[in-house]
């Protein structure tokens, strides 16, 4: 029950947060118009391999490597892995500075999701990493197929997260 609760809450928070980050930077990129980013990168169509692969590398392997040298997870993830993630998106999206900033913020957001919703003793990245993977995959699919519904979906998933947060806190008490 504890695992399921963390998985559901982590996934919803990751998904809604990623959509919100993308919307915010889309507004900034388009001079506060309502049009979200719509990129035509073919990698978005590969949402079910791109997202797990990126999360496994940038939210698991790179921070773990830094933890091996004594850095805390959040410090390594936000200060090293997130800038690398942003640099990859800067290159992938035709040197778009807003895509890079959006990717950096999204990387930090998912790092916090992984940390918040992972078990302690041991810190096993579970289910936080899976939450980040599923949230990222859902975000990629949403941006590809339902970009005009991003705001509504972000609000609805945020509300669902809040409801589940209240419910599972009561169950845990």
């Amino acid at each position: 029950m504890e695992y399921a609760g963390k998985l559901i809450r982590g996934y919803l928070l990751s998904y809604s947060g990623l959509l919100a980050v993308s919307l915010i930077f889309s507004y900034l990129a388009n001079n506060y118009s309502s049009t979200p980013f719509i990129t035509e990168s073919p990698t978005l169509f590969h949402g079910l391999i791109v997202a797990p692969s990126e999360e496994m590398f940038f939210r698991y392997f790179v921070p773990l490597l830094l933890m091996y040298f004594g850095f805390p997870y959040l410090l390594g993830s936000c200060m090293v892995a997130a800038p690398l993630f942003a640099a990859a998106h800067y290159w992938a999206y035709n040197n778009n500075i807003y895509a890079m900033l959006s990717a950096f913020t999204a990387g930090c957001w998912n790092s916090m999701i992984v940390y918040k919703y992972s078990g302690r003793e041991p810190f096993n990245f579970s289910p936080g990493l899976l939450c980040a993977m599923l949230g990222h995959a859902s975000y990629n699919l949403t941006v590809t197929y339902m970009a005009d519904r991003m705001l509504e979906i972000s609000v609805i998933t945020a509300l669902l997260w809040a409801l589940f947060e209240i419910y599972f806190r009561r169950v845990e008490e």
Binding site: M56, G70, F71, S118, P122, L130, M133
Partner: peptide, 15 residues
Amino acid sequence: MGEEIGVPWDAIIVG
């Protein structure tokens, strides 16, 4: 890093 580290088998399986 003082705490123990575990392996995220759920994420690896989904991967």
